[in-house]
Nucleic acid binder design. Sequence first.
DNA 1: GCCGTTTTCGGCCCGACTGTTTTCAGTCG
Length: 587
Amino acid sequence: MDNEQISKLLRNIATAYTIKNEKKFRFQIIAYQKASDTIKNLTSEIKEYYKEDRLDELSGIGTSIRGHLIELFQKVRVKQFEWALKDIPQSVFVLIDVPGFGPKRAYKLVNEFNLTNPKTAIEDLEKIAEQGKIASLSGFGEKSQSDIIRSISEFRLGKGKTTKMILPYALEIAEKIIEYLKTCRDVKKAEPLGSLRRKSPTVGDIDIAVASYNPESVISHFISYPHKERVMEKGDITASMLVSGGRQVDLMVQPPESFGSLLQHFTGSKSHNIALREFAIKKGLSLSEYGIKSGRYKKIRKYDTEERFYDALEADWIPPEIRENTGEIELAVSHKLPQLIELGDIKGDLHIHSSFPIEPSHDLGKNSIEEMLNKAKGLNYEYFGFSEHNPSISKHTNSQVYALISKRNAEIEQIKLKTKSIRILKLLEVDILPSGKLAIDNKSLDVLDAVIVSVHSVFKMGKQDMTKRVISGLSHKKAKILAHPTGRMLNERPGYELDFHKIFEFCVKNDKALEINCWPTRLDLPDILIQQAIQNNVKLIINTDSHSTSDMNLMKYGVSMARRGWAKKSDILNTLGYNDFIKWLRG
DNA sequence: GCCGTTTTCGGCCCGACTGTTTTCAGTCG
């Protein structure tokens, strides 16, 4: 069983407990949900934690659930789970994935209509709703019957939060809506919050906060958005709608004097907020989007900025990117938060594909060496590295490969003569073959300043073999950077299997760096691995992997990812000045 | 069932909205 399946299993246990007796099992339900989330967010398989006897490192998994997981890995069947799941039809766990269905409603419908086949439960229920059989059920009515039909249809089309957007796409939608919101006079401020503000690599829905003295007017303006598909909810201070494309947008409004508490509340993450509120309780305080209530006086104090809100808790302001309840609250309270890297700290971009006809087996860039370079100057970089893919080895002999690389180098040298304001490096992105050998030979490698190595074929290898392959590729003296280390493509494929303990160890020992690739569908390394890499003293470098001049603006996404991984300026190699950087590259 | 900045026992975030209700349950974030 993989993480996704085990996470779902634990969530099902929580659902089962909710159906059995929500009050009695209240805290077990929370515990199982938390354990489920922990496993869902892991970057390596939980089974590895079990094998290495490291399950106790995971927060939210205590003695009891740990014992059940061990039983799961050893015997497959878990007595406690079987007891909890007994009497609950499988269809319930299928139906619950459809928005609007919680444990209670799903269970009631499955039982009432005897939906025994989990594979067809959703469409069976749809038919029953269409036949008008649900409205007469106690607790249901005409409206909920038609809502069910619509929910199922939207779920099938992947609308709402069912599918996640990559970050730039979500930002684009948010910016349009914010621009529209600002045409309303009553809107004093409007900001994108939630996972968008935390710069999460994928975003389920778009959260927007507005400061206004007239929430009614703001909400009525919001739901009149010309590109809306439908309004899902409309209350006094919040509203939700689907915009064209089926993307969900949530709105919350507070007066300007409470905007700080609203920002804090609506930025999340959920687990950060829960932890912060638990911390506040110990101080006799109660937090919400309205402000802070003191237990004794019950009077609410309002905060116009987030800084003042955190300050009221005697904590430093916490950058949104690290609000994931992984220790940031404790450090904010002890005033020991790290100074995270910023976009302005970046002094160079080393992973650039020009259109120079180097005849690679992978893709070529769209803009010339000179065009890319001019863009780099515009970004005020100190140094810049060209790293096209190596010439295709199936179509060229070694000497042809050498000739192509030399030709590119010659062109770079020509341009270097005319260029004073920026230092240029002659790099290449070289494939690590399944054997672990680099795709090009030493003669070709010798004419390069260094190479970026990466895996572009045969992804399905065992973890140990893939780790050996990558380490073998990185072992070459010229190989300094491992590009997009996990190989994941967001919304497309998970990464290949790698033993990152070994990779980290190798990189530290041999002074190699791991790339944080800025490409929005990659964002690779993932944040959690960035954090682990830093803890292990592994050097990192943020590269755009640009294939056109406009791609070079993607640097901000890599920096956000680094911030999510708690990276400081000193953790990132391309914040170094040229002399220090080149010393590392050639070292 | 988890967890430790008064705790290995006794706590466990806080609120909005909808539909079916006649005061609230269910779902969501």
